[in-house]
Computed example of a mutant assay.
Amino acid sequence: MDKVKVLVVEDEIIVAHDIKARLEDLGYGVTGVAITGEEAIEKAEYTSPDVILMDIALKGNMDGIQAAEVIHEKYDIPVIYLTAYSDDKTLERARVTQPFGYLLKPFDEKELRSNIEMTLYRHNQEKAKHQESEKWLTTTLDSVGDAVIATDTEGYVKHINPFAEALTGWRKENAISKKIGEVLSLKSEVSEDVLEDPVQKAIREDIFYGLAENTLLVSADGNSTPVDIVGSTIKNENKEIIGIVLN
């Protein structure tokens, strides 16, 4: 069985190497030690740890909370905060980044192991729940009798159903991860102008019915079809926008 990989982010070098040694004694693999928030983000991307131990009070332009926020959004790697601070203001800032645990310095090996194991369990449960939710969403979108495209909040295509494939001329395997403007080419029949990005319009208005009168969709083979686009946001349980559905 592969070792659980841990990234240590701690700007006190002696403390960092002590944590590294204790992790290795407990049977974990350490992918590296980072001493700044920027280095933590870089090593999170290139070493792909299973969990990150993140000191909150990092020196420099980016503290541990800011680094954890970027890592959470970009890489979905669970973070356990290491801190000597337990004041309400610091903890409130930390909570926004959805950490999986806190270790108050100094901590012992038992606390270290239990936090890591509980974090891995919770993260795996959340991933399984998310995958089941995505499977349900895909099945639902494929069964809709209209053309439907789903994107993330940056406008990258995450799903396109068979009706939308036929309408746009894009096969699913080619459309996924493309920007919506490449797959859904829209213009005004009257002015020939390219229309507003429907993803940004949905984010701004939450839901919209139609981009403009006489909207044309230009398919991959150059054919134009009159369409009436409806856009709405997909939100998680915290009411945060996580995607857009266009049909």
Rank of each mutant, 00 (worst) to 15 (best):
R122E: 06
K127G: 03
L137S: 00
Q125R: 14
E126Q: 14
K135F: 10
E126A: 13
T119W: 06
N115H: 12
H123A: 08
L137F: 05
M118L: 15
S133G: 00
L120C: 08
A128W: 04
Q131K: 14
V144F: 12
D142T: 06
S133N: 01
Q131V: 10
Q131D: 13
T139N: 15
N124F: 00
L137K: 02
K129T: 11
R122W: 07
V144I: 15
D142P: 03
E132S: 14
K135H: 09
N124M: 00
M118T: 12
V144T: 05
H123Y: 10
E117P: 01
T119R: 01
K135T: 11
H123M: 06
E132M: 14
W136D: 04
Y121F: 15
E134F: 09
I116E: 01
S133F: 03
D142V: 08
H130S: 06
K135G: 08
T138E: 05
Q131F: 11
L141Y: 01
S143C: 08
N124R: 04
Y121Q: 13
H130W: 02
W136M: 07
I116R: 02
E126P: 04
Q131W: 08
N124A: 01
M118I: 12
Q125V: 14
H123N: 10
S133T: 04
H123D: 11
A128M: 10
E117H: 04
L137C: 00
A128Q: 11
S143H: 13
I116A: 04
